[in-house]
């Protein structure tokens, strides 16, 4: 009925409609089953790759910045440390000088006081010994004299001694 003859073959219209329909259905099914998920996944992957590249770039610049910062801080710290060490050396030197100076001073002071003490003690000892010698000689003298002199003489001697004491007191 609707058949035509082209190059010796029969063209059946029913076949045409059937082929069209089946092809359209096939396209629809492929779209449903494979095309949509696969293109979505490919798009997602493309996006992920580009975002990964971006983030990697970012991370690299960040790392560079951090490295620079770290280097700068390291230099800074090194400078500070050498400053601190110099300061410490200087202050140590100062302290040492101070301590030595003080010690010198103390030593001279101590020497002076010691000398003074020694002098004083020597004086005192000298005075004491003089006193002792005097009293001793008096004792000895009085013992010798008491054996030889009588009452009157002794009286006279005591008087003269007292007189002498009074004179000594006056002369003082």
């Amino acid at each position: 009925m609707f058949s035509y003859s082209v190059v010796g073959a029969e063209l059946y219209t029913g076949d045409m409609i059937f082929v069209m329909l089946s092809f359209v259905v096939l396209v629809f099914l492929i779209s449903l089953v494979a095309w949509k998920p696969i293109t979505k996944m490919m798009n997602d992957r493309a996006n992920k790759i580009s975002s990964d590249i971006d983030s990697a770039e970012q991370a690299r610049t960040q790392a560079n910045e951090l490295a620079q910062k770290r280097q700068a801080e390291l230099d800074n710290t090194r400078n500070e440390v050498s400053g601190i060490i110099n300061d410490a050396k200087e202050s140590g030197q100062q302290q040492r000088d101070q301590i030595i100076g003080k010690a010198h001073e103390e030593v001279t002071n101590m020497k002076a006081t010691a000398e003074k003490d020694i002098e004083q003690q020597r004086q005192e000892a000298l005075a004491n010994s003089r006193k002792d010698v005097a009293s001793l000689s008096i004792d000895i003298a009085s013992k010798i004299i008491s054996k030889e002199i009588n009452e009157t003489d002794q009286q006279a001697l005591v008087d003269s001694y007292i007189e002498g004491l009074g004179k000594q007191n006056e002369s003082r």
């Binding site: 059946y12 029913g14 076949d15 409609i17 089946s22």
Partner: peptide, 13 residues
């Protein structure tokens, strides 16, 4: 339905 169908084509497609 008044249309001619070729069984070989239909099965093959």
């Amino acid at each position: 339905l008044g249309l001619t169908f070729n069984l070989a084509n239909i099965i093959s497609v």
